[in-house]
Amino acid sequence: CHSECLGNCSQPDDPTKCVACRNFYLDGRCVETCPPPYYHFQDWRCVNFSFCQDLHHKCKNSRRQGCHQYVIHNNKCIPECPSGYTMNSSNLLCTPCLGPCPKVCHLLEGEKTIDSVTSAQELRGCTVINGSLIINIRGGNNLAAELEANLGLIEEISGYLKIRRSYALVSLSFFRKLRLIRGETLEIGNYSFYALDNQNLRQLWDWSKHNLTITQGKLFFHYNPKLCLSEIHKMEEVSGTKGRQERNDIALKTNGDQASCENELLKFSYIRTSFDKILLRWEPYWPPDFRDLLGFMLFYKEAPYQNVTEFDGQDACGSNSWTVVDIDPPLRSNDPKSQNHPGWLMRGLKPWTQYAIFVKTLVTFSDERRTYGAKSDIIYVQTDATNPSVPLDPISVSNSSSQIILKWKPPSDPNGNITHYLVFWERQAEDSELFELDYCLKGLKLPSRTWSPPFESEDSQKHNQSEYEDSAGECCSCPKTDSQILKELEESSFRKTFEDYLHNVVFVPRKT
């Protein structure tokens, strides 16, 4: 048989008469490798580009789960590009990614509803959504962080984005990388972005840091009482949809009607710091009717980097990364020049730590249904340095008659930039024990000054392991946590139920 035959053949030295091919099969003959313009397919066939392209389009058009959109890589027609490569849609070739590779997620039936953290986790790592997304989240724990972890990498949506009755959302900033909504599939009414009845939605994105392009379709905003109209108009300008909307697409009466839409800028007039305090004062603000001013709200939190936005980490279910302080308005003076500047002394802060701070007014709604208010920009203030805590785990070892090696770990709280350490030492008198000992005694162990690591005695271990207080009263049991108490109650309830079950099964009433 021919060298490319495997198993047997019907005619000697003829690659077209093989029972099976050793390498690849091409047009009725066995070959060692697939010549151009053919590609290896499933490690035994040679196919042309049209064959591989037909497989790709067949799966793409069917949208069946589990099928493969075949691509070409290293002269092979394979189910998908290997790690580190992405497909070129024009020629199906796998090309190296520039940075992290995109991950295209194809949605069944063309859309997916995100109504819980669990459903959001199914899209973790996706960068391109081939379909439409509907966000409908009523509640949950730590929602802002969970949504950002699972949806934060999405850069492109081919269909539309719909935010509907998501009472738990305060902001859409968890879509931190969303840059493009194509609108290839539109919501009824030709809408590519749809926001309806979101009672706590206050911000779409921080438009000073976020760009969003909507290729096709219109915007729809109705019944978002805490979303200011200025935020919607800003989205029109940034996304390129200005002029597409009709009169009733953006409701003037049901958007922002319960919001404090600040239209003035508060400026800080005085800032002073110490290692654990920050004193702030800002310019006074009074609405047209000074009785509408209820006070100020001061927001602050630790910020290692200057990239904080107002609604980071917030949701309507209680999660809030900001510390909020309510401040009463100052006494009002008739003389504008003698107006008191409101302020606040922030206490209990960490030394040498940068804080993000902003302040906003708290006002009631005027009778004319106009909203007044003022808010400052987010500023960054760093507390002063102070003395560091003591170095940890000092170790001293003498390696000769004239040297001592000293080692330690950095302090747990540096409280500033540590530039150097101060080492103090003092000579001590020799131990009298060394002169009084009889060095001729056998088995004498000389006193040693070398360091030995501390260890816990058996008594201390027994005390720590004991669940009861000892007789001397030195140790006591740790208080039980809520989960331990709940577990004990469940076990007790189970024992009672099981005992009742045994009584009912074992003891049967005697027939009379």
Rank of each mutant, 00 (worst) to 15 (best):
M297K: 10
W322M: 03
G373R: 02
M346S: 03
L362R: 14
F299V: 04
G159D: 01
I134P: 00
Q216A: 09
W344S: 07
R179E: 08
K350G: 03
P388N: 01
G189N: 15
S119L: 12
S338C: 03
C126S: 01
E246M: 13
L169E: 02
E122F: 05
S260L: 09
L153D: 03
H233K: 04
S158G: 02
P411N: 01
H106F: 08
F268P: 01
Y167N: 15
I327D: 00
D315W: 02
A145T: 07
S321R: 12
C228M: 04
D312N: 07
Y372P: 11
L147D: 00
Q121I: 15
T386V: 12
G110F: 13
K177A: 08
S401P: 04
H222Y: 02
L143P: 05
G125K: 08
S333G: 06
R370N: 15
G313I: 13
H210I: 04
I250V: 15
E146H: 04
I404A: 02
T386F: 10
L180V: 11
T213S: 08
K234N: 09
P336Q: 15
S158M: 10
A195M: 11
N334A: 07
N307R: 02
L151P: 00
Y191P: 11
E148K: 08
R247T: 11
K337A: 14
Y270R: 00
T364N: 15
R281M: 00
E156K: 10
S319L: 11
Y305W: 10
D393K: 15
G373N: 02
K112G: 15
T185S: 10
L219W: 09
E187Y: 04
K103F: 06
Q258V: 12
L406F: 15
Y223L: 13
K360P: 00
I157D: 00
P394W: 15
L172T: 12
K177Y: 11
T353R: 10
R247L: 08
L212H: 02
Y300P: 00
A144H: 10
K162A: 03
L123K: 01
G373M: 02
D335G: 05
L265G: 06
S338T: 10
L252W: 11
H106S: 07
F296R: 00
E146F: 07
S376D: 00
P288A: 07
D197T: 13
V238Q: 11
I129W: 04
S208G: 14
A316V: 11
F358C: 01
D292M: 09
G110V: 04
A385R: 09
W352E: 08
F268M: 07
N255P: 06
D312K: 14
G152S: 03
T254G: 12
I154H: 00
V397F: 10
Q245Y: 06
M235A: 09
S239N: 05
N263C: 06
N141M: 12
C261R: 06
Q245N: 10
L293K: 05
L406M: 15
D335A: 12
Y160G: 07
N248Q: 04
E187K: 14
W344V: 04
L252I: 09
S274D: 14
D328R: 09
W322S: 02
Q339C: 08
P225S: 05
F221R: 00
R165I: 10
C126F: 01
K360S: 09
D393L: 08
Y372N: 13
G183T: 02
V381L: 15
S319Q: 07
R347Q: 08
R244E: 05
N340F: 08
R138I: 15
A120H: 10
I154Y: 00
N150T: 06
S239T: 10
I379F: 05
P391S: 02
S192Y: 01
F221Y: 13
S338W: 03
E262C: 06
A259I: 15
P336T: 08
W282T: 02
K360A: 11
I214Q: 03
D326S: 06
I154V: 11
N263D: 04
L362E: 09
L298S: 01
D289F: 04
G131V: 00
C105T: 00
N307Y: 03
K218C: 06
N399I: 10
W207R: 02
Q245A: 12
G140Q: 11
K301P: 00
H222A: 07
I327G: 01
L227M: 13
F290S: 12
A120F: 06
L186V: 07
Q245T: 13
G256D: 02
G240Y: 15
W352C: 14
S166Q: 12
K350S: 11
K234E: 13
S173C: 09
L204P: 02
C228I: 04
N263H: 04
D115T: 06
C228H: 14
Y223C: 09
S269R: 06
Q258I: 02
H222Q: 11
N142S: 13
T113A: 10
R247N: 04
K162R: 10
F221L: 07
K301G: 06
I232A: 09
E237D: 15
R281P: 00
K277G: 15
K234H: 12
K242Y: 14
G343N: 14
D249E: 15
H341N: 12
A259L: 13
W286L: 11
N263M: 03
G318P: 07
A195L: 09
C261L: 06
T383Y: 00
W352S: 11
C317E: 15
L196G: 06
E283Y: 05
L227E: 00
Y191N: 04
S402T: 14
L392M: 15
L123F: 09
I357E: 00
W282S: 00
P287D: 07
Q314R: 15
T383P: 00
F268S: 01
R247E: 02
V363D: 04
E262R: 10
L108M: 14
C317Q: 03
Y191I: 14
A374H: 07
H341P: 12
P410L: 11
T241F: 10
K103T: 06
S116F: 04
E155H: 15
L294P: 07
Y191D: 02
G189V: 15
T213P: 03
N141E: 14
S366P: 02
T273W: 12
E184A: 05
F268K: 00
S269F: 00
F268Q: 00
C261G: 04
S239L: 11
D292T: 12
Q203H: 03
T371P: 09
N198I: 02
Q354A: 09
Q203F: 03
N224S: 02
E122K: 02
Q306P: 15
R176P: 04
S119D: 14
V325G: 03
W205H: 09
H106G: 04
K409V: 09
E236P: 03
L201V: 05
H341R: 11
I114Q: 00
I214G: 01
I188N: 02
D393N: 05
L293A: 09
Q121E: 13
A195N: 12
M297R: 02
E368T: 12
S400T: 07
P391Y: 02
M346A: 04
L362M: 10
Q339P: 07
R179V: 10
E155M: 10
G159K: 02
E155K: 06
N130G: 04
P351F: 07
G140L: 14
P336M: 02
Y372S: 06
Q403T: 08
V390G: 03
S119Y: 08
N307A: 13
K177N: 15
L227K: 00
L219A: 10
D367V: 14
S269W: 02
P410A: 13
F193Q: 00
K409F: 11
